[in-house]
């Protein structure tokens, strides 16, 4: 113990002799403590180092803020109509704010076939699209982690039953499974979309968590926890899961863009939210008929999807490096 080394030696009787537990002056070191890095600190560190990941994070935050404050930042109301299919950067003149005076406004991204301002619609669409994406991943995260933990922790029959179910989900392409689930549940609405895509994503989380739990379960601190008398639930949630969190976080970041695409695909197919709600998928769908006359109606929301998907992917890759997780573990 370094604290016992301080002070005059008790055992050494002559200069240059050292008793047990004593260290010559030149080898004595100051007490140093290795820095412990929490998950949050590691994320911050990687964002500082990896500029691409930082850019991704900034874009993601930008989109989230825009969606949250859409009524304040959007140039117009979502239902406000202008001339049909105006080109990007075109202008409209008229009394739009109801103050009796005519003013000129610019449609930076043009207007669509109903005369809605596309920039405004994309901002409002971000609300639904991002909300659905986060809710979907949260659903898949919760269910998948719970199933994976149970399967990995108990093994045996429970493991077999759960993992065969997971295999069943895994065997279906996401969209086909989503379409099937919505068909079974009937009706449209964002909650149905969340559950449909969420179920399709459960397998990715369950597999990763099960693998992590299987290896962590062998650790001696789990035996120690059991020797202390902790219940299985406490062992799973307090001892095992905190050690399995890094790959799950990375997986979540990489699943969000897929959820956005999934929601867009379902909306495009007319199985998503109600047709009048602005979501990115529906905006693309609306512009489909007019693609030869007004390309911007479909392309602009498409660009928004592309940007946010790319941003999440670079952020996820950065986190993957930060947690030193192999490509094969998370996909």
């Amino acid at each position: 113990m370094s604290d016992k080394n301080a002070g005059t030696p008790e055992f050494a009787r002559h200069a240059g002799e050292f008793g047990p537990g004593e260290v010559p002056e030149e080898y004595r070191t100051e007490e140093t403590v290795e820095e412990y890095t929490t998950t949050r600190e590691r994320i911050v560190r990687v964002l500082k180092r990896d500029k691409l990941a930082l850019l991704g994070a900034l874009v993601v935050v930008g989109f989230i803020l825009t969606a949250a404050f859409a009524p304040y930042v959007a140039p117009h109301g979502p239902e406000q109509q202008f001339g049909f299919m105006q080109e990007p950067m075109s202008e409209s003149t008229g009394d739009f704010d109801g103050d009796g005076q005519r003013e000129t406004v610019t449609h930076y991204l043009g207007t669509d076939s109903f005369g809605y301002d596309i920039l405004t619609r994309i901002m409002y669409g971000a609300q639904i699209s991002l909300l659905v994406a986060f809710a979907t991943v949260a659903f898949a995260f919760t269910v998948g982690t719970a199933l994976g933990t149970l399967a990995g922790f108990y093994g045996g029959k429970i493991d077999s039953v759960i993992m065969r179910g997971i295999d069943f989900i895994w065997a279906f392409p996401t969209i086909i499974l989503g379409v099937g689930i919505i068909a079974v549940m009937g009706g449209l609405g964002w909650l149905n979309v969340v559950i449909a895509i969420g179920i399709a994503f459960v397998d990715d989380f369950a597999r990763i968590v099960r693998g992590e739990v299987l290896s962590i379960r062998q650790e001696e601190y789990i035996t120690a926890a059991q020797a202390v008398g902790m219940s299985d639930v406490r062992v799973m949630f307090r001892e095992i899961l905190p050690n399995a969190v890094s790959p799950i976080i990375v997986q979540a970041t990489l699943m969000i863009p897929l959820a956005i695409l999934g929601e867009a695909a379902l909306s495009f197919l007319g199985l998503g939210v109600k047709p009048t709600t602005p979501t990115w998928g529906l905006l693309i769908s609306d512009g489909r008929q007019f693609i030869s006359q007004a390309w911007w109606i479909s392309v602009m929301p498409g660009l928004a999807i592309m940007t946010v998907v790319l941003a999440f992917n670079t952020l996820g890759d950065g986190l993957r490096d930060a947690f030193d997780i192999s490509e094969s573990e998370v996909n």
């Binding site: 001696e220 601190y221 035996t223 926890a225 020797a227 202390v228 008398g229 001892e239 905190p242 050690n243």
Partner: peptide, 18 residues
Amino acid sequence: RSEIQMVFQDPLASLNPR
């Protein structure tokens, strides 16, 4: 379990790193 306790061989492995 509160009467019989255990001390393990590998001290680091027996302590939860988080």
